[in-house]
């Protein structure tokens, strides 16, 4: 399949803050409501890192959708991944954010396609982890780290083979 590109529109942003309240616990983080350290007033607002995160999510998501379309039996086990990508995009995207994804062909065999999805998602996890270390905003770092953790959970739950996916 030749490489092609298409614009990907994204939904309006949600401010992350409402989702970021910590669950209460007696020996967990402080519950005094104070926010992670605010960045200095002259801080760069991490735009490059947010763009890079959105691009990485869009690329991974496009691949998962292609695999789901090409291998119908994988659509159901991969549905949680696409839902996760959508949720993550909504968390950090601003209204009107668009991107372009490079479309790659998917493997012919379903098990190989599943392995390719796993590799792509692990790549996304690494990208989010790296970006979490780079951003100046503590709140954004926390969000990106949690996004990486969410991807890691879904990767751990992926079936090993197409046969497992059918089971």
């Amino acid at each position: 399949m030749p490489l092609s590109s298409r614009p990907v529109s994204r939904r309006t942003t949600l401010a992350a803050a409402p989702l970021l309240a910590l669950a209460g616990c007696r020996w967990g983080p402080a519950e005094d409501g104070d926010e992670p350290a605010a960045e200095p007033s002259n801080a760069v607002p991490d735009e490059q890192q947010v763009k890079a995160a959105l691009q990485a999510i869009a690329d991974a998501d496009a691949f998962v959708k292609d695999v789901s379309a090409d291998h119908v039996g994988l659509a159901e086990p991969l549905a949680a991944l696409t839902a996760l990508h959508t949720a993550h995009q909504a968390l950090i995207a601003k209204e009107g954010d668009t991107g372009t994804t490079v479309r790659m062909g998917t493997p012919t065999r379903a098990t190989a396609a599943l392995k390719a999805v796993r590799r792509r998602e692990l790549g996304l996890q690494r990208t989010l982890t790296k970006l979490a270390g780079e951003v100046s905003s503590g709140e954004l770092a926390r969000t990106l780290a949690a996004m990486a953790a969410g991807v890691a959970q879904q990767v751990a739950l992926l079936p090993e083979t197409a046969k497992d996916a059918d089971a």
Binding site: G133, A149, A152
Partner: peptide, 28 residues
Amino acid sequence: RAWGVNALVESAVRQLDFDGDPTDLPGI
């Protein structure tokens, strides 16, 4: 911070060993 990110990712995956459900933002 890097240590914290790795610890968060590991802990999120370990939750599955204890029958935890995946979430969009583990730790949050």
